[in-house]
Design a protein around this nucleic acid. Structure first.
Length: 422
DNA sequence: TCTGGGGTCCTAGGACCC
DNA sequence: TCTGGGGTCCTAGGACCC
């Protein structure tokens, strides 16, 4: 009996979500764009094969997209978030020990003998596909880092058919030798270049370097990664989501903003969104940070600035946060620039229950404010974002992001429900 | 014309204190 | 003009992840 880590990763997740509700897409190449229809952030296998590159600006790939009849979608995070929940709920059936690592990935721990583990993984894969329509790949290993590596191979080697178990695999070193350092979980672009300069090109070479050398060049984080490659667990399963220390809402605008009022409305909107995230984890924020910037791609005068303001007491109350965000904006706003992007971060997050209040009257007001925000959140959750909103957020929103290719919110909006025809 | 968004952790160095 | 030793806290910047 061994306990091993399984990494379940949804294949081309956003593109797969679009396909679930539109069977016409099954054999067609599909790409999904980032907010504001800017860059390509997801590609079906067919789109990859056609030569579409990840993270590239959409408009630069337009020719290729037309030539291959590639189906293009604006990011529909409402849909993807809901599909993610369905996948995660399905995975929970298979292991009580689970960590939701990202919108499309989860670590599970599985127990069993070698053969069992693989058939268990196959069962998970079949079930997720059947219940949600999403194809997944599963990698198994003695550590999270090895499970990640196994997953990479499971996706790339057709014979794996979506599953690879490296947990007690005698060939694990052969696989590590095939794994380029830049593809190791925890080794990014910078470290990969540094390692290459030192003649280290694959995971096996890295795993055999002395600890002291690793620590000196890649800090303790790098040493953890290397130890995990050798099969010793350093990175535990995070069973419970830890509360965030800061939340950020930022957007590029659909069109440039010059006007102070419009910019302040956008900032109010982002503040409201951040505040909602803060309340969702039952926190209150002690600092508001606001940044604004012009587009560095445009050949015109540039400006960017960032400012922090502290609140007298931590709060999750949207109107208070909007007020302080507005003051912050006043400190950095300059007339005469074409603004392209703004963002609002809330930090100094503390549990809502720990907020210090002295006076009894304060406590009463505090409870009233909380009740209002709860009501607002409840309405917006059930009826859709910004069903109820603050006047400071504005109404026209000329800066709203572009989403020209948005698919319906099939699963979360009655109006968008797919219709089955006889 | 059009170029995403949201996080975490670690370290070095400076400020400050005794 | 010379100028110790040790500790903590904060911040900026750099690395990483999806």
């Amino acid at each position: 009996m061994d306990t091993v880590f399984a990494l379940v990763d949804c294949n081309n997740f956003y593109a797969s979500c679009e396909r679930v509700f539109d069977p016409r897409l099954a054999k067609l190449p599909v790409v999904v764009l980032s907010n504001n229809d800017g860059c390509i952030i997801a590609r079906s296998n067919e789109a990859k094969a056609a030569g579409i590159r990840m993270g590239e600006p959409f408009f630069e790939q337009q020719d290729l997209i037309d030539r291959h009849n590639i189906q293009v979608f604006s990011a529909n995070f409402t849909l993807y978030g809901d599909m993610s929940n369905r996948v995660m709920e399905t995975l929970k059936q298979f292991s009580p020990q689970m960590e939701i690592y990202s919108i499309d990935e989860a670590f599970l721990t599985l127990s069993g003998t070698t053969g069992d583990l693989e058939s268990c993984a196959r069962e998970i894969r079949r079930t997720v596909r059947k219940w949600t329509g999403i194809p997944v790949s599963i990698g198994l290993g003695l550590t999270k880092t090895l499970a990640k590596a196994a997953n990479r191979f499971a996706k790339r080697i057709p014979e794996c058919d979506g599953i690879l178990d490296l947990s007690l695999n005698p060939a694990v070193d052969d696989y590590l030798e095939q794994l380029e350092v830049g593809d190791i979980w925890g080794v990014g672009f910078r470290y990969a270049k540094l390692l290459n300069r030192h003649g280290i090109h694959n995971a096996l070479q890295l795993a055999t370097r002395p600890d002291a050398w690793i620590k000196k060049n890649m800090t303790v984080t790098g040493l953890r990664t290397v130890t995990e490659l050798r099969g010793t667990t350093c990175i535990r399963l995070e069973h419970f989501a830890r509360p965030k220390k800061a939340v950020l809402t930022s957007r590029s605008f659909g069109q440039l903003i010059r006007d102070r009022t419009q910019l302040s409305q956008a900032v109010a909107e982002f503040t409201a969104a951040s505040a909602e995230k803060v309340r969702r984890q039952r926190s209150a924020a002690a600092f508001v940070h606001v940044f604004i910037e012009t587009s560095s791609f445009r050949d015109e005068s540039q400006y960017r600035n960032f400012v922090t303001v502290g609140l007298p007491t931590a709060t999750g109350h949207t109107p208070v946060l909007i007020k302080y965000a507005g003051r912050a904006l006043e400190k950095i706003f300059k007339t005469g620039y074409n603004y392209k992007r703004a963002g609002v971060m809330l930090s100094g997050l503390v549990p809502d229950s720990q907020v210090q209040l002295d006076l009894e009257s304060d406590q009463k007001k505090h409870r009233q404010k909380q009740a209002i925000m709860q009501a607002v959140d409840k309405i917006n959750l059930s009826q859709g974002r910004n069903t109820v909103f603050y006047a400071a957020q504005g109404v026209d929103k000329p800066w709203k992001m572009r989403q020209l290719k948005l698919s319906p919110r099939y699963t979360t909006s009655w109006a968008d429900l797919p219709v089955a025809k006889a």
